[in-house]
């Protein structure tokens, strides 16, 4: 592993007495595709939500490029450089695809009320740059032709792509994808795989939660496995697949 980008230390989270995460630590190297897998209810999405600030952790800390993240404040996490997508797509359904991506530029632009009302030269320049950047990103994920369609009217696969484009608009150091292949057919998944591989070669580090084991094993450099809120393995895909604890977690009950 090269330089460490993200380090989570001892993250724990309970929901009213139910343990969702117990002392989970992991490190993600710069430029990696890091997979997070585990049976249903293992705590993957909870970990995601803690990492991206939607939940506050009961214990533990996260650093990004050595700097501590202010967990529990999603907008600060985004500013620090982590962007995410959602398992069940959350787009601004009644905004156009272009506008969705433009919203993603929020942290990278600064026009306030005064600038907007006076339409100062700086604001106009910034606005033009936002539009240009949004188009670039839509092209990057391959849906620029539908820039002016409402997000709700896009086909499923394009909605996933749009969500990725919106996340990329925040210029993240780490892109966290929550089951991006969920509900996709084989050809859509193949295209997604290409997109993710392309992102990596463009220097973006990726944290991937996924059920599609083939996708994870084919793409990821390293994989961590969660079970009942605990990390039970962290290794290369090949090693993880042979790990007896992982097999046990997936098949349920010790193999005797």
């Amino acid at each position: 592993m090269s330089e460490v980008l993200l380090a989570a230390n001892g993250i724990s989270k309970n929901f009213g007495g139910v343990r969702a995460l117990a002392n989970v630590s992991l490190t993600i190297g710069k430029g990696e595709i890091y997979g997070l897998i585990g049976p249903n209810g293992a705590g993957k999405t909870t970990f995601f939500n803690v990492l991206t600030g939607l939940y506050t952790a009961d214990a533990g800390s996260v650093t990004l490029s050595g700097r501590a993240l202010n967990l529990g404040q999603p907008h600060e996490v985004v500013r620090a450089g982590i962007a995410r997508t959602f398992q069940n797509i959350r787009l601004f359904a009644n905004m156009t695809a272009l506008e969705n991506v433009m919203v993603g530029r929020h942290t990278k632009s600064r026009a306030g009320v005064w600038g907007a009302v006076t339409a100062s030269r700086a604001t106009r320049a910034e606005e033009a740059a936002i539009v240009a950047r949004a188009h670039t990103l839509l092209k990057y994920v391959g849906i620029d032709a539908r820039a002016n369609d409402l997000a709700r009217n896009l086909p499923y696969g394009d909605q996933r792509r749009l969500e990725i484009a919106r996340a990329l608009a925040t210029e993240p150091g780490l892109l966290a994808l929550d089951e991006p292949a969920a509900g996709m057919n084989a050809s859509e998944t193949a295209a997604l795989r290409e997109l993710i591989a392309g992102l990596r070669s463009d220097g973006i580090t990726i944290l991937l939660i996924e059920h599609d084991v083939k996708l994870v094993m084919g793409l990821c450099d390293r994989v961590a496995v969660l079970d009942y809120g605990e990390k039970i393995a962290e290794a290369t895909p090949e090693a993880v697949q042979r790990d007896p604890r992982v097999i046990e977690a997936y098949l349920g009950g010790p193999v005797e």
Partner: peptide, 25 residues
């Protein structure tokens, strides 16, 4: 002017989906 600005987009984004708006920073 406000509607068609960074601030106006943020307002509408919140109306549409507050959690996604947070995730956009």
């Amino acid at each position: 002017r406000l509607e068609d600005s960074r601030i106006g987009r943020a307002w509408v984004a919140i109306r549409e989906d507050e959690i996604a708006a947070k995730a956009c920073g």
